[in-house]
Structure formats: C-alpha cells, structure tokens
Amino acid sequence: MLLALDIGNTNIVAAIYHGDHLVTQWRMATDRRKTKDEYRILVIQALENSGLKKDAIEHVAISSVVPPLNPMLLSMFQEYWGIRPLIVRPGTKTGLNIKLDDSRSVGPDRIVNAVAAYHHYGGPVIIVDLGTATTFCAVNRHGDYLGGVICPGLGISTEALVAQTAKLPRIEICQPQRALGQTTEESMQSGVYFGYVGMVDGLISRFKGELGEEGQQAQVVITGGFGELIGKGCRQVDHIHPSLTLDGLRLLYERNRGER
C-alpha cells in the first residue's frame, strides 16, 4: 500500500492507497516542533484507527511546501519503515511540460494538482486549490503547464481581518443564506464567503479569456480544505475533487516507481 502525504503550511493530509483505490485518509496539524518519534506515533495511531497495521505501508510519496520537515520525515520512514519516500521536487517525472521561465520555482502542490487534474479531466483544465494559500493553475490540451495565480487563503484572510481590527470578532466560515448581513458576524461571513466565490469565478473568467478559444472548452476543478464550501457557490466550477492532490501523488509515484 502507498502512503501519500500532502504537507501544507497548516495541515498534513494523508491517505492510504491500495492500487488506485483510496482506502482511508486523515488530517493532522503541521507542526515543525514535533519530532520524528511523535510523527511516527501519529501515523501508527491513524493506521490503527483505520484497521491497518504499521507494516501496511510499503511505499511513500510526499508533496511538501514546508521544506524543514522533509529531512525529518525522510529519516523517519527510512529508520522505522525501511522505505525511501518519493518527495516531489524539480526533476520528478510529471508528464507535463512546465512552460515557465523558472520551472523550479513552482510549488510541488501546484504541480501535483495539475498532474491529477490533467489525468482525470484532460486539457485544457483550470485548477483551484483553496488551502492556506489559494492557488489557480492552468494546463492546456497539450499538457503544457502555463502558470497561474497565488492569493491569500480564506482562513488567513479572515484571521488578518480579526487581528487588524479592534472590534471584529472571530467567526465561523460558512455559506450565508444571503449577502445582506443583519449583524456584524453575518456581514463578515457574507464578505468572506461571497467575496471568495466572486474572486474564484472572476479569476476563472480571466483565465478562460487569456487562453483564447481553448479557454471556452476548459474544465474547472476545485480542491483544498475550503474547496467544497466555496466550489458549490461558484458558477464557473465544474468539478469538486477533495482528493485531487493525494491522487496526484499516487500518479507521480507510479510514474517514478522505476527509479525508486
């Protein structure tokens, strides 16, 4: 079985795959202060909660935007499982053509998402990932990765609003019934939710325009922690795919397996 780890700035999303079947998945907080023993215990506990044993893990694939964790996790899997993980980095075979001036600067999470989206939906495809940061990427019909947009994430934008104002409270991020809020909390929820829905739809429209004739045929897929919440309110989103990044890790492991 393959353990796929998507290491983000806020959460680590993990999944177990048996072939192309997603067996189970879980989340844990990203914490640079934790030791490899603490992470090992968390992984084993999550496996046991899913009815799996420690030695169920035979392969590991990692996408990480938190580089300080990478050496520790490599050491953990090598020491306790005898596995050398695949870490997505420049040089990893993706099957895409990265059409950027500096292809090494693209975050591994964006590449992994693009690989999965192109595999599942073909091209042209536009990918939106609503995590700690909100990212947009585009891949054309030929499998060329064309770049995209990086915006502040929904969660950190809301926290910044609360932190930089004297009287605004923390709120639950949810879908309001209407845009016209009757209380401060409702007004904030409306601004956060409908503001991000509008941003997503607006940027997708711009992407489609810049892609020209091809853009009118582009499929749009959304993922990430807030993907389902925002995606169901967007007119431009065709597919909500919560496991997109994890699926991409599985695909990349298979494509690079011969070199492991």
Rank of each mutant, 00 (worst) to 15 (best):
M1S: 02
M1A: 11
A4T: 14
L5W: 00
I7P: 13
I7C: 01
V13E: 09
A14W: 05
A14D: 08
A14M: 13
A15W: 11
A15K: 01
I16T: 06
G19R: 03
G19S: 15
D20R: 11
D20T: 08
L22A: 04
W26Y: 01
R27V: 11
R27T: 02
A29G: 07
A29P: 10
D31H: 15
D31G: 05
R32P: 08
T35L: 10
D37T: 11
E38R: 06
A46N: 11
G51P: 10
K54G: 04
K54E: 07
D55T: 13
I62A: 06
S64F: 01
V66R: 00
P68R: 00
L69T: 03
M72D: 07
F77H: 00
E79F: 14
G82L: 00
V88H: 00
K93T: 06
N97D: 03
L100T: 11
D101H: 07
P108E: 10
Y118L: 11
H119S: 09
Y121T: 05
Y121V: 11
P124A: 11
I126R: 14
I126F: 14
A133P: 02
T135I: 05
C137E: 09
A138R: 09
N140D: 10
R141A: 02
H142A: 11
G143M: 04
P152V: 12
L154E: 03
G155F: 09
I156A: 10
S157P: 05
E159I: 00
K167N: 10
K167E: 12
P169A: 04
P169D: 13
R170L: 03
Q175N: 12
P176N: 08
Q177S: 10
A179Y: 11
G181V: 13
Q182I: 13
S187I: 01
M188Q: 07
F194N: 10
Y196E: 14
G198H: 03
D201M: 06
G202K: 15
I204K: 05
S205W: 06
R206Y: 04
K208Q: 01
K208P: 04
G209N: 04
E210C: 02
E213G: 12
G215V: 12
Q216T: 09
A218N: 06
A218F: 07
Q219I: 04
V220N: 05
I222C: 05
G225N: 02
G225Q: 04
G227E: 09
G227S: 09
E228P: 05
G233D: 09
G233R: 14
Q236M: 15
H241T: 06
L249D: 01
L249G: 13
L252T: 05
L252K: 15
Y253I: 12
R257F: 07
